[in-house]
Amino acid sequence: MRRAATLLRLAGLGLLLAFLLAPQLFAPLFAPLTEGGAPPIYDQGNLGMLALAHLATVLAACLGSTVLAVALGILVTRAGGQEFLPLSRAVVSFGQTFPPVAVLALAVPLVGFGEKPTLIALFLYGLLPIFENTVVGLRTCPAAVLEAASGMGMSARQRLLTVELPLAMPLILEGIRISLVINIGTATLGSTVAAKGLGEVIIAGLLSNNTAFVLQGGLATGLMAVLLYDAVAALERRLCRTARID
C-alpha cells in the first residue's frame, strides 16, 4: 500500500516535470479542447519558468507567514504575552476573512502591479493555520515534561528551544502544509494583477476562450499542490519518528 502510494507520487512528479519541461509532448491531449486552430499548449511564455516563479512567490510568502505566526504563537503562550492572545487571534482570523482578491486590489495602489500585491495577500492568508497550530502545539506539551525540563535547570529559553518547539514541530509543520496548499491555488489570482505564475496561463485561457490553457494551468497548479502537500507530510513523519526515538 505504502509502496504503491510512493510510486504514484513519483509518477505524478515525473508527469509534472515532463509537462513543464517539454509541454509540446502533451499537445495531442489538449488539441481536442481548442477551437479554430488555437494553440493547444500555452505559447506566450515558458511553462517551467512560470511554475518556478509561482513556487518562489508561494514559498517566500509562506516563509514570512511562518516567521510571524510562529513568533506570535510563542509570544502568546509565554506568561508575559498571554494578554495578546485574543488580539492576535482576531488579527490572523481577520486576515483569512478578508478575501485575497480584495487584498490584491487594495495593495496595487500602494505597491504597484506585479509580485508584491500577491506576496502581501498570500502572507495574510497563510497566517491563520500556522498560528493556530503553533498555539495548540505549544499548549499541549505535557506538563510533566516541562517540569522535568525546568527541574534539570533549563532556563525558559533553553526549554523553549530544546523541548517545547521540537515537541510542537509536527503540528507547526502541519499548519505550514495547510497554508502552503491553500496558497499554491490562491497564488493564481495574483496573475489578475500581473504577477508571474501559472495563473497567467489560466487567465490567458479565460481571455481567449481557450479551455486547453485553463485546464493545463489548473492541472499543473493542482498537481504541484498535491506533491508539495505530500512532501511536507513526509517531512512531518520523519520528524515525528526522530522525536519518538529520542
Binding site: 479542447l33 493564481t188 489560466i202 485561457g205 479551455t211 485553463v214 494551468g217 489548473g218 497548479t221
Partner: peptide
Amino acid sequence: QTIPSIALFGILMA
C-alpha cells in the same frame, strides 16, 4: 480543493 478557483471556474465553462 487543490485546483485553483479561477481554473475550476474556467474548466466548468466548457
